[in-house]
Design a protein around this nucleic acid. Structure first.
Lengths: 237, 237
DNA sequence: GTTTCTTTCAAACGATCGTTTTATACAGGT
DNA sequence: ACCTGTATAAAACGATCGTTTGAAAGAAAC
């Protein structure tokens, strides 16, 4: 019988199996996906029995939830710590680059496997995965959206929100491909080091955030190019 | 017995089953992933028998390959067509925004499901999936990288390559989340329309591409922020 | 009609899936 | 020793997986 609902959440000496299961699940979920990584493979990599996952966590899905609630906490904490350290620029709000650094650095410096796993969940459409991501990262993300909005007083909040989502996509995709960009281009580009990625990513994103406002929505009919399908069945509310 | 290797590749009147299987696979692969979507679910959605996939395509993986080689061709063709239409700006090379539009528009206007499927494969690490993406899109992508390099003569090619990868990540993530951005922010942000996304995405990316060069690599130890450790696991606090 | 090729169908194949069950080993408290 | 709760072990559960088989249906040519 399992111990209790929290499954001995307090620190213990015999946490070996739990920790090894979390590490193995992090690696294999990131490599093969949630549906692709089997419990037998995970438990074999962790050196435990097959039943260990259901005993310690309750189910495969609960294992993923426990993995996220553990790995995300230090990332979110360091983000907020770095954000609090941001000093204002010449004007009142902190420099945009500082905010972006506080947001992006913890995401890149807490393990590439977890970054790949986050990227996997971010393209998932199942409700469980979207809820896990939302529960673990939405609060701090909203805090940083507010900070970026404050740092860009010339832009309306809606526009900053768009660009913030673009930034999230760039971040997630860079985390997913961290360590392997070899395709397209034979240039020496080796984003294994988080600092090397951030040194290029932050100026790129900061310039994008500071881009002038695009022209307001011209409601004109642009004739779609030949061969393009309508691409969307839009539901009428 | 299957007809032959190409399985009647030429247009035929009785292509109903093949086409319906491709459409159903596109939707379900995008929704549940390659490992998550079963052949029974796909064939049921297509209105065919379970054995139809193995008869018409040979295997589940071959179905995915056939799906990509069919869906990617019009996208790549329209990309190159729009690129050829790009007119030079004041200087010699075409405007960066025109190039980005030629690259991004076909990706967003050829079906949201296929965009989500591309996003799924882009975070996959298995060799088959990376090869499918590489075979279908790498050639045209390299052409556009060259065009962007030519449009930004002040930047070294390596830096443009970094930013091009950032752009690919933003594009893929925006395709994956097309139609559902509702998280983070309650602002009215509805990226169902491709043109609405492009109108915001292209200025954002163009400004990022035109960002000044980041400071050259500080070759020595820059003291990392306190508390941040280089991605390793840490001991009990 | 028959013959031949193509496509569809129902059924089954072995393998693997997540989960559960049953039993066993090992603690510490009394 | 005895009991009690915790952790691991091996085996089996039913379900689903991708694939294959062999027969039946359909279509066109003769």
């Amino acid at each position: 019988m399992p111990p209790d609902g929290l499954h001995r959440a307090s620190g213990d000496a015999t946490e070996g199996a739990r920790a090894r299961l979390l590490a193995a699940a992090e690696r294999l979920f990131a490599e093969r996906g949630m549906a692709g990584a089997g419990l037998r493979e995970i438990t074999a990599a962790a050196g435990t029995n097959l039943a260990a996952v259901n005993y310690h966590f309750g189910s495969k899905e609960k294992l993923l939830e426990a993995l996220f609630t553990q790995r995300a906490r230090p990332i979110v904490a360091e983000r907020l710590r770095l954000l609090a350290l941001c000093r204002p620029g010449r004007g009142r709000p902190p420099m945009l680059e500082q905010i972006l650094h506080a947001f992006l650095r913890p995401a890149f410096s807490h393990g590439a496997e977890f970054g790949r796993l986050r990227a996997r969940l971010s393209v998932e459409s199942e409700a469980l995965y979207r809820r896990i991501l939302s529960d673990t990262f939405d609060a701090s993300t909203r805090t940083f959206l507010d900070a970026v909005v404050a740092a860009l007083p010339a832009l309306p909040r809606a526009e900053v929100t768009w660009r913030f989502h673009f930034m999230l996509g760039t971040m997630v995709s860079s985390m997913a491909n961290s360590g392997r960009i070899q395709s397209v281009s034979d240039d020496a580009i080796d984003p294994a080091e988080p600092e090397a990625v951030l040194a290029r990513l932050i100026p790129f994103l900061a310039a994008g955030f500071r881009a002038p406002l695009p022209k307001p929505p011209k409601p004109r009919e642009t004739a779609p190019a030949p061969g393009t399908r309508p691409a969307a069945r839009r539901r009428r509310p």
